[in-house]
Amino acid sequence: MIEVDKTNFEDEVLKAEGLVVVDFWSPKCEPCKELMPHVAKLAEKYQGKAKFCKLDTAANRRLAISQKVLGLPTIAFYKNGEKVAELTQEVTVEDVEAKLNELV
């Protein structure tokens, strides 16, 4: 998974072509840390079909809010730079994969 922050979010996500999945998390969010390894496995499984990024919201609060993310965990799906879907709170890896299959 690519670590994104305010310096590269634009290039990696908003200007990217195809499907990009962004895992919004923070070091304090226990459910986020629980979910992340499962999302990382999806990143391997869907290599070439979607790009996977993670964003630490504690260090990039303004960026998170600009993406209208105000709760964790949030998994956002971007297609050609535009947010097309989002899962937030009580997210399971099964939900993420189902959404992925819908979008790839």
């Binding site: 923070s26 304090k28 969010c29 226990e30 459910p31 919201t57 504690a58 609060r61 998170a64 809010i65 209208k68 993310v69 105000l70 709760g71 964790l72 949030t74 937030t88 709170q89």
Partner: peptide, 18 residues
């Protein structure tokens, strides 16, 4: 607005609201 500003857990979400 769940997860969009509505929260039930301060520990989880407080730092967004600095």
């Amino acid at each position: 607005f769940r997860g969009k500003g509505v929260s039930y857990c301060a520990t989880c979400d407080a730092d967004f609201f600095e």
